[in-house]
Amino acid sequence: MEVRTIKVFTTVDNINLHTQVVDMSMTYGQQFGPTYLDGADVTKIKPHNSHEGKTFYVLPNDDTLRVEAFEYYHTTDPSFLGRYMSALNHTKKWKYPQVNGLTSIKWADNNCYLATALLTLQQIELKFNPPALQDAYYRARAGEAANFCALILAYCNKTVGELGDVRETMSYLFQHANLDSCKRVLNVVCKTCGQQQTTLKGVEAVMYMGTLSYEQFKKGVQIPCTCGKQATKYLVQQESPFVMMSAPPAQYELKHGTFTCASEYTGNYQCGHYKHITSKETLYCIDGALLTKSSEYKGPITDVFYKENSYTTTIK
């Protein structure tokens, strides 16, 4: 009895394709271990004539594949690729409408935090270190965002349907971005203890939790000093293409032309909904596939993004 075979390709990165001759009487799992086709788990399936010449994702289970996976995804987590594939199996079914010149995501599976993050990423200057993220990001900007969303979920250790947080998501993504040249110098002034300067680099240099107003941050924000008295913390120097200011959701007025974009969060910790506000020729609110415009805006804002380049204080 002759062994019926077909020729397929296996890959971990969709760049390096490895030619395989597979036995049609055995499952993919018996031949390769966990195997995925377009995100779908085909591990328990036997090869079919229609699979001839198709590319299958496999887990990096030998040295060659491990090197290829690390170079593309910059992670050695053995569960990463499987999590990416199972997320992709959902995100490829989502709709990605162009809204006001940006790629958004039609609401499904509690994905409003991903839509808000995706919209924000198209408006701030950011370059990702893992080629996987950078490639998928370019495709997302062009309207094909399924891979990018699935990668975000995998890097953030999230599953489809789980509630997510924009600030946490951005923080994970910033860790995989090139923020080497970003720098922030802060000064804390206390009447009792004097003053202390701190220099922050990388992710810490672009994120701040405690106030939404970048102007206020430049002037000074009140913080408790270690001595128990009130101290003032203010920005001395900022070198970065953008800054992200966050605070627990509270009524906040966004003035046209003073910011790049913002995240609105309605609801409580267990259950809520994100919308995205962007400042173009007027203010726009993007909620999944829905767009509304207004000249002014007041609502429960939790993150505001500002364009920056270089700032030095005039406070002496």
Rank of each mutant, 00 (worst) to 15 (best):
F128V: 02
F305Y: 05
G53R: 13
F128N: 00
L151E: 04
A145C: 08
Y72K: 08
Y28K: 05
G143T: 02
G194I: 04
Q98A: 09
P248M: 15
D41L: 10
D62P: 06
D23A: 12
A150K: 02
I286M: 03
Y172E: 07
R83K: 13
L37G: 07
S79A: 15
M24F: 11
I6M: 12
K191D: 10
K233H: 10
T260E: 10
G53M: 14
F305H: 00
I315P: 15
F242E: 02
A117N: 05
Q122H: 03
Q251T: 12
Q238Y: 01
Y269D: 15
T211S: 09
S171A: 13
T35M: 11
Q20P: 07
A250Q: 15
D135V: 08
T55I: 15
L200V: 14
T292Y: 10
N16I: 08
V67I: 13
A136Q: 09
S104G: 07
Q30D: 12
D62Q: 08
W94K: 05
Q230R: 13
K54M: 13
Y234V: 09
Q222L: 12
G299P: 02
C190N: 00
T91C: 09
N147Y: 10
K229H: 10
V99P: 07
F217S: 04
G161S: 05
D180I: 05
M244C: 02
W94N: 03
M85K: 07
L283C: 08
L291P: 06
Q196T: 13
T159D: 12
T278N: 07
A115K: 06
S310H: 15
D303M: 03
P249L: 02
Q237C: 11
Q195Y: 10
I315K: 15
L126T: 05
G29P: 05
N89A: 11
C193L: 02
P97H: 12
K316C: 15
I286K: 00
K106W: 06
Y297Q: 00
L37E: 13
V21K: 14
K307E: 09
K218G: 00
E204R: 13
R141S: 10
Y36C: 05
D109E: 11
T35W: 04
Y252W: 14
L200G: 03
T75P: 04
C285F: 10
G161D: 01
Y214N: 02
D109P: 02
N110S: 01
T55K: 10
A205S: 08
L254S: 00
D63V: 08
Q98E: 14
S279M: 06
K293D: 10
E71D: 13
F9P: 05
Y208A: 11
Y269I: 15
L283A: 00
G143S: 03
W94R: 03
T292I: 08
Y269A: 15
K7F: 11
D62S: 15
L283S: 00
T312V: 12
V99S: 08
C112Y: 03
S50F: 10
Y137E: 05
V160W: 02
K275A: 13
E239N: 09
S50G: 13
M85V: 07
T278W: 04
G161Q: 04
S25K: 15
A132Y: 01
T64H: 09
P130Q: 03
N89L: 10
Y284N: 08
G143Q: 03
K280D: 10
H256W: 15
C112H: 03
K106G: 15
M85H: 09
Q31S: 14
H48S: 14
K7I: 11
T266Q: 13
Y57D: 06
Q270N: 15
N157S: 07
Y252F: 12
R141C: 13
G288T: 05
K307G: 07
A289Q: 10
K92Q: 10
H48R: 13
D62I: 06
K275L: 04
T19I: 14
Y84C: 08
S295P: 09
L283V: 15
L37F: 12
F128G: 03
D41T: 11
N187W: 08
A262C: 01
T266P: 00
P47H: 01
E281M: 01
C112I: 04
Q270A: 15
S263V: 13
S181Q: 14
K255N: 08
F56N: 02
Q238K: 01
G29T: 03
T169S: 04
